[in-house]
Amino acid sequence: MDCTIVGASFAGLAAASVIAQRGLRVRVMERKADPGEKLHTTGIIVKDAVDQIALLDLMPSEFVRAVPGVRLYAPSMRYVDLDAPGYYFLATDTPNVMRWLAARAEQMGVEVLLDSPFQSATRVRGGYELDGVGETRYLIGADGPNSQVARSLGLGLNREFLFGMEYEFEGLALAADDRLHCFIDRKLAPGYIGWIVPGVGVVQVGLARRMRPDADAIKRVMEKYLAKIAPVLDVRTLEPQSIRAGMIPCGGVIRPVATERALLVGDAAGMVSPVTAGGIHTALKHGLAAGHAVADFLEGKCDDPCHWFAKTYPRFRKKRLLRFLFDHFQSDWFFNLMLATAPMRMAASQVYFHRRGALTPAGARVSTTAKAVKGGEFVK
């Protein structure tokens, strides 16, 4: 086999598709029996990804819905609406998106092995011997934040995490369904936020916070969180149709991220924004780039990507600094005080709209209507 990719993830399937397109033999090993089950992502895709990644042009329209704005809530539940002209987020039916990506990869010649967990890799001349699978000339680890490929090869490991939980509810109507609802609260979500997403056929309600992966503890936090956001959407008496939970790496790209004839991509590499915890955009972008780099090497056109491609991974220097500040200096009273001010709106635009909001010189405008919750209704 020319290349084996561990993990039918966004990054793994993107890399596999590119390598197969180049006429090389590539397989994807996935421990799950269904690439769409037991996901650990809310599935938000930013407009920047849609603009930059042609692969997404082919995604079935019924798997996505555009959400054009953000409603940002302070701990007091006062909020501002943030918009940038022409900008939007795509909420996705993520399980079906992953199934579509896997099926498309197979159509392009990728051998997708489901229910096939990675065991170990032994370095041999010309590549690796994979336990139970055979030899491969190149190995890509796209197997999540606790990468077994990284452990097997002695590569870096993610050590800084957020732990998140999300409930999905069907048949609900959200009053402001053109917004991603984001809630700041240091007690409930230290180091991150809570959210309500008007998804595809569902409403997604979740939060992430700095804590050890303790499902029981975060369930107790979720109860308090659901009570707090009840004036916006009351789901306290409802049973979710599905529950997602998992760890989100937030420490930046790990080191080392590659070795001879092997490299890591996506969450396995820590390629997740330390501030927003968004990883789909970078996973797709660098997964595609990794596929081309590995294909070039296997075709004899360049040196092993382990020596140069890893240098193209984002460093997240500023975002890691913001992560440090948010972890150590997050203050509820500060957000309550500053929510509707111009500096706060500008900072929020940087985070949510990637420099397209209030700081865009071409006249992009951020709506800043500040409101509060009273008696279950929004009032000025």
Score class of each variant (00 low, 15 high):
Tyr79Gly: 01
Asp83Ile: 13
Gly69Pro: 00
Pro95Glu: 02
Ala74Pro: 01
Glu62Gln: 14
Leu90Gln: 09
Arg99Glu: 11
Glu62Gly: 07
Glu62Lys: 10
Pro85Arg: 11
Leu90Val: 08
Trp100Phe: 15
Val67Pro: 03
Gly86Pro: 13
Ser76Ile: 09
Asn96Tyr: 07
Arg78Gly: 01
Asp81Ile: 14
Gly86Lys: 03
Ala91Gly: 11
Ala66Met: 12
Arg71Val: 00
Val64Leu: 01
Val64Thr: 15
Arg78Leu: 00
Gly69Asp: 14
Tyr88Ser: 08
Met98Ala: 08
Thr94Pro: 04
Met77Lys: 04
Met77Tyr: 09
Tyr88Ile: 07
Trp100His: 13
Pro95Gln: 04
Gly86His: 14
Leu90Met: 14
Leu82Val: 09
Pro95Ser: 01
Pro85Met: 08
Asp93Trp: 02
Ala102Gln: 06
Ala84Ile: 08
Gly86Cys: 10
Glu62Ser: 11
Met98Phe: 10
Arg78Trp: 02
Pro68Leu: 09
Gly86Val: 14
Val97Thr: 12
Pro85Glu: 15
Phe89Glu: 02
Val70Arg: 03
Asp83Thr: 15
Thr94Trp: 09
Pro95Phe: 01
Arg71Asp: 01
Val67Glu: 02
Phe89Ala: 03
Ala91Asn: 04
Met98Arg: 07
Pro68Tyr: 03
Leu82Glu: 05
Ala66Ile: 02
